[in-house]
């Protein structure tokens, strides 16, 4: 989890590299009910997303 990018940085990074139309298209609660959620996610504001881009 500590390597996760901030959402805005994910979009910015892909744009910088040359990807087009980068956008988050869906969000998930992938850590719901895990020990990670209990111990970490609330503090770190961690979530998961589906992200689309094209070359």
């Amino acid at each position: 989890m500590a390597g996760a990018l901030p959402e805005a940085e994910l979009i910015e990074l892909t744009q910088t590299i040359g990807f087009k139309d980068g956008r988050i298209v869906e969000r998930f609660k992938a850590f719901q009910g895990t020990s990670a959620e209990a111990k970490l996610s609330a503090d770190l504001l961690v979530g998961s997303v589906n992200f689309y881009a094209r070359k």
């Binding site: 990018l5 901030p6 990074l13 770190l44 979530g47 589906n50 881009a53 070359k55």
Partner: peptide, 24 residues
């Protein structure tokens, strides 16, 4: 991400699921 860009054909698509945070 640079490697992903390199291997994609022009117009190729990225279908990414990953962990994100709201702030650094």
């Amino acid at each position: 991400f640079g490697e992903v860009f390199r291997v994609l054909k022009p117009g190729g698509q990225l279908f990414l699921a990953d962990v994100v945070v709201q702030r650094e």
